[in-house]
Amino acid sequence: MTTLLKAVLPVLAVIFLTACGSGNADKSHPPHESDSSATAAPVAAGVHLRDDKLNAVYPHYVQLTTALTNGDMAAAKIAASAIAAGAGEITGGAALGAAAANIMAATDIDAQRTLYAGLSTAFIALVKQSGLSSGALYVDFCPMAMHDKGASWLSAGKEIKNPYFGEKMMTCGDVKETILPATAAAGTGSVKPQFTNVDAKVAASLKAVVAQYLQIKNGLAEDNSAGAANGGKAMAAAMEKADKTAMTPEQQQLYKENEDDLKEHAEHIGKNEGNIEHQREHFAQMSEDVYALVKAFGGGQTLYHDYCPMYNDNKGARWISETEVVKNPYFGSKMATCGSVKEVMQ
């Protein structure tokens, strides 16, 4: 492993230096490849974030991570100043900017590393919000960082190079999550409807039901109980009109397994205007039904299967969305971006 590391390091160093040729940070401090524990950041070719402004800051995050991994305080300050400058341009980048400014002001590497934990959390959240258009990023986690509280960071490679301890504990941690472009996620998590012979009338009926589901979902995400209630009433009405006669026996069976449950949730959400938490309880169970139906019949449009692990005392809950951007219906504005896309449903 170490020999491999040694063999790979110079290569990575070269990639890094060329990739960040414009970054004066690398030229302003002496390289230290003589030290075998020193590592260069693997700027994986092809990582591109959808948000252009965030994408512009990303190389500086890589520089900062590398600097901390190498224990290079001066380089960390330079990278942090670049992040602070770029963060101002990013929507929702205030926390990132503030953390970067604090790293610039920090007087020792330990303080920088502590601040880096908060910066990474903010950066990871922004990356998830933006999504990738190409490449892959890994969320790494070291349980020992921050006095055993644990902390995360983002890397472009699967190999662990710990920025919280540097050479003291270079390989502490593991990859907790992989962030892939939605289209690549489609390669692994994309589903096509189970039934290929869905009658046009059936498809139209179900599309109307899904449309009302999305209205409920958007109402809840906007903390708009009345909007959700209207969607619930309209969904119950749309279900009354659903054409079951054109379904095959197999399709009828699957539909019936979900029909009475779904209708009850729709009516209940319709009746509970003003009690949004109760509407959300029903929405969690409703989403299971809608998920089953869309998976079997298709939704008439590209839909995203999202999952929030925190809802219902961390038991988690899913929902279906028409947008790739996560907008949490279970917490609304309290935690709008909690959750991730699990599947793309064509």
Binding site: K256, E257, D260, D261, E281, E288
Partner: peptide, 16 residues
């Protein structure tokens, strides 16, 4: 008379 799914969901909500 309830579907399987509805039975399970009702039990879940009764608990709550």
């Amino acid at each position: 008379r309830y579907s399987l799914k509805r039975r399970r969901n009702k039990l879940e909500r009764m608990k709550e």
